[in-house]
Structure formats: structure tokens, C-alpha cells
């Protein structure tokens, strides 16, 4: 079976968008998800994974260094670290912010594209930043699938529009239908 990874990037308005996406994934969703949501470096109380877990049937974790990427699990980047994909495990970095962000969506997408190539599905959600646009290019250059939240359904359209402008998007999907789109994609690629 093909080993697929889903990476998700979100900024302003991202919590609701991610929660909507996760709550509409089927309980048996087969792929792992790695999520970067821009947040304050001081948000260290594990609030994001705890809040998301309430809306999600799949187990949600904050990724730690060298954690194995397990199918059907959801991983959130910890605050103040870049999250990278290193073969079959996660890697963290405290290197400088990229586009003012740490974690950076570009850093996650670029490393995931290098590790998973055409077996990567990348999702750009709402945000008032252009983080993710470079990453989207890398995903497409490596042969991956690029999905973008329909800007009309985004709290902030800037980030979806930047990704759409930067790379050849495979599908623009309203946020309410994103989970179902991934469910169907997983079903067809089994």
C-alpha cells in the first residue's frame, strides 16, 4: 500500500477551519496528518491539541522530536519550533522564523515534499500571511497533490490566494467539504 502523508497549514482563523476539517474526517481515515497552525510562542499549555481532540475521532498529539509518523494519527507542530518531516519520523528545529513564523508552513511543506514526493497531499487553509505559497510550489514540483481552501469560505483569504497564485492547485475546496474530499481521496488511493 502506498504510504501517504497529509500536511496542513493554517494561520488566522485556522482553529475553526482545522476543527471543521478534522471533525469531517471519517473515524477510519487511513493517513497521518501533520498540521502547522501559526500561534504564539507562549502557547505552551498544550491547548491546541487538547481543543482539537474534542472535535476529532483520530488521536491528536503535539509532535515531539523523532516521533514516528503513525497512520491515522494527527500531529500538531509545537509552539516556537519548526516541524519537519525526516523520512518516517518528525524532526524539530529552533532555527530562525521563516516569513515571521515558527512553526512555518513552508518549512513543513518543503521537508514533506522532499520525503514523500508524489505521495504527499498538502492542504492550505485560511490565513493572513503568504506562508505556504513557497511550500505549495515545492509540493507541486515534487509531484504531490495540492488542495486549497476556497477563499470564499476562509476567515482570511490572503493565504489561500497566495497559494493559488504560486502553484498549480489540484482542487479548491470549501472548508465544509475538505474532510469529505480527503476521505474520498483516501478511498480511491487505497
Amino acid at each position: 500500500m502506498e504510504r501517504v502523508l497529509v500536511v496542513v497549514g493554517a494561520s488566522l482563523g485556522g482553529f475553526d477551519a482545522i476543527a471543521t476539517l478534522l471533525s469531517t474526517l471519517s473515524a477510519g481515515f487511513p493517513w497521518p496528518l501533520a498540521i502547522v497552525q501559526h500561534r504564539s510562542a507562549e502557547d505552551v499549555a498544550d491547548t491546541l491539541p487538547v481543543m482539537l481532540q474534542r472535535r476529532c475521532a483520530l488521536p491528536v498529539h503535539e509532535a515531539e522530536d523523532k516521533d514516528p509518523i503513525v497512520n491515522g494519527h494527527v500531529y500538531v507542530a509545537p509552539p516556537d519550533y519548526h516541524l519537519l518531516i525526516d523520512g518516517g519520523v518528525f524532526a524539530l528545529s529552533t532555527e530562525a522564523r521563516v516569513s515571521l513564523a515558527r512553526p512555518s508552513i513552508d518549512v513543513l511543506f518543503d521537508s514533506a515534499a522532499a520525503a514523500f514526493g508524489s505521495s504527499l497531499v498538502a492542504v492550505v487553509l485560511t490565513g493572513a500571511s503568504s506562508d505556504g505559497a513557497f511550500g505549495a510550489q515545492r509540493v507541486k514540483a515534487a509531484g504531490g497533490t495540492l488542495l486549497v481552501q476556497d477563499p470564499a469560505t476562509a476567515e482570511s483569504r490572503v493565504m489561500p490566494l497566495a497559494a493559488i497564485g504560486a502553484a498549480a492547485v489540484d482542487q479548491i475546496v470549501p472548508i465544509g467539504a475538505m474532510g469529505e474530499y480527503l476521505n474520498r481521496l483516501a478511498a480511491t488511493r487505497r
Partner: peptide, 9 residues
């Protein structure tokens, strides 16, 4: 060194 972050640098 961990490959993913070394690659970036």
C-alpha cells in the same frame, strides 16, 4: 545530523 533540517541549512 538529522537530514531534514541539515538539508534546509
Amino acid at each position: 545530523y538529522a537530514f531534514a533540517s541539515l538539508r534546509r541549512r
